[in-house]
Write a protein that binds this DNA or RNA. Sequence first.
DNA 1: GGTAGGATGGGCT
DNA 2: GCCCATCCTACCC
Length: 202
Amino acid sequence: MYGPMRFGPILKREFYARDTLEVSRELLGKVLVHGTTAGMIVETEAYPGGDDLASHSSRGITPRTRVIFGPPGHAYVYFIYGMYQCLNLVCEPDGKAGCVLVRALEPVAGIPIMKSRRASARKVEDLASGPGKLTLALAIGPQQNGVDVTRGSLVVREPAEKRKFEIRVGPRIGISQCVDRPLRFFVAGNRSVSGGKAVNGF
DNA sequence: GGTAGGATGGGCT
DNA sequence: GCCCATCCTACCC
C-alpha cells in the first residue's frame, strides 16, 4: 500500500437517500473508515421499517429510533445485549424510516490498532467479522450515534480499486420476527463474513 | 469441525 | 419483567 488512507471519494447523501434494500446491496465492497482504521464492507442487513417488525423503527419514533426517521447518510448506533454496539447507516428520504445494519468488514487499514482493541481475535479476518466486533475494532460507540457519515471522521468511501465479487442473499441473523425475509446480503466466500460455513454455505 | 450457556444492561410493555 | 439486529469460553466430537 502507498498510504494508509488511499481510498476513493466519500459516498454522498444521494447514495443513502434511496430504497433500503438497494443501499444494503450496494454498500458491499465500499470502505468504512473511522480515523486511521478502515475495513471493506462484506455483509449487511436491510431494516426497512414500516411493517417489518424486526426493524426498531417499526414501532414508531422513540428517543432511540428518532435518527432512523431523520435525514439519510447518518449513523444509528445502538446498545445491545448489555455490552455491544451495532452500527447502522440511515437510508430513505428525510422523514421515512429505513437503515442498513453493517454486519462485517474485511480489515483494510489500521490492523495493529484493531488487534489491540480485539485481543480475543486470532486471525485478521476475525477482527471485524460481526456487528459487535466491527464497532470494537473501529472504536464506534454512542458518540457516533446520529453523526453525518458524508463528512467527518466516520465516513464510507469508494474502494481504492474495485474488486469483482458475487453477492449472496439470505435471511437476517439473530431476529425472531420476519425470519423468512431475504434481507441479508454478503460477499460470497469472504472469510470475514459472520456465521461461518453452516450459515453461508462455504 | 461443531454447539450450549452465560455475561450484562438499556428500552419498552 | 421480558426481550433482545451478540460474543466468548468451555467442551465435545
